[in-house]
Design a protein around this nucleic acid. Sequence first.
RNA 1: GUGAGAUUAGCUCAGUUGGUUAGAGCACUGGUUUGUGGUGCCGGGGGUCGCGGGUUCGAAUCCCGUAUCUCACCCCA
Length: 403
Amino acid sequence: MIKSLRGMNDILSEDYERFTYFIDTASAVAQKYGFHFIQTPLLEETSLFKRSVGESSDIVGKEMYQFIDKGENDVCLRPEGTAGVVRAFIQKKLDKAGGVHRFFYHGSMFRYERPQKGRLRQFHQFGVESFGIDSVYEDANMIMMVADILLACGIGYRLQINSLGDSNCMPTYRDNLVKFVTECKDEVCEDCIRRLDTNPIRVLDCKNDKCQTLYATAPKLINNLCDNCDSDFTKLKKILDDNNISYEIDTNLVRGLDYYSKTAFEFVSDDIGSQSAIAGGGRYDRLVEFLDGRPTPAVGFAMGIERLMELIKMPEPKKEGYYIGAMDEDTVDLVVSLAHKKRKTDKVTIDYKAKNFKNHIKGADKVNAKYFCIIGSNEVDSGTITLKDLENKTEQTLSLKEF
RNA sequence: GUGAGAUUAGCUCAGUUGGUUAGAGCACUGGUUUGUGGUGCCGGGGGUCGCGGGUUCGAAUCCCGUAUCUCACCCCA
């Protein structure tokens, strides 16, 4: 038997119902916030991700589905959504057009990782990106949108926020942190030594207890923000307070992708295992210019749909459509014709076999039909059919033509 | 990439110190005498016990390898 590749799942039946329910719900919220759908290719030039996500990240370093295509182009399946949207934004010259551009997207992402709960090699994200607004109100707007989406799906969460500083205050802070960690280099774990070279800020969320004890006295970025970043962060907290969105400040919250600055946030769930981040995002004011666009402030987020799946509370399924059954072999033809006619406007389920009443009604219940009718010799003789409403348990008689 | 646990019917799982023909519940399917409600009753189909080796008179059971899943590390949505 040929099986799907490791970490790549089929989505069908109830999973598909949940999946599309989430996308429909999230899309509706995004549209209320004035965002427009954008679809970008699954395959992009590899350098796009090297320049945006960053070569130091694990994603680019070892998790990309990368290959040379038949035209000798170095390409890869997208590992995340933001880079492609930014590329499209620049390619369509929207950076030069000025103004505000707001997009949402959803689709498959690919990372060559060891699969576990909430982590797949092909997974799906719903995300939004907002270009052209440097106001912290837009950062808050993102957080409120995620909160609205999660609320609409009945999903509980904890919100963690932090500020990563900007090109003004971050580099100075990073140097100080490197100095601090270097001084206790003999005591920290191997991973942290590695992080000093690759991405020093990441030492802050090291899970090693010993490291955490050492870092308790490390300089905190939150205390070393420049005036602009500091006042924005204060404002962000006020907006969230004013709108009754509770949050925790996590000074160790570090986004894994290089392009983030200033506001960083993560929505986590305590009910889905160790891969607990269900949504994450933040500001990335420098990314457009890194990708050769005109400098444009931007902010966005992405949600991991697979991680949300088991948390989504679905609405009660409603009875819908018709079930038509034949009592005799020679009325099956009529049932098929009636179904064909009725399907112009409604969902219709039929069985090609003649059965008795009880068996047909079992079938009707199984497909959750709202109306039930059965065609036997009585109906053919009288030219009428009896329509039974399975919800209200009422019946009405119609002529075959009226049906 | 590292470590641990799992894999038996479509699904969830039993299966004794290795011993006849591998079971249950749910699901599926047929019947319940061709006309009014699902839940009742009676039947039926369905398994290369993940795959490949080995030990043994004999393996679902013990050993080795391998694939996949799960959990954790790493990383991230």
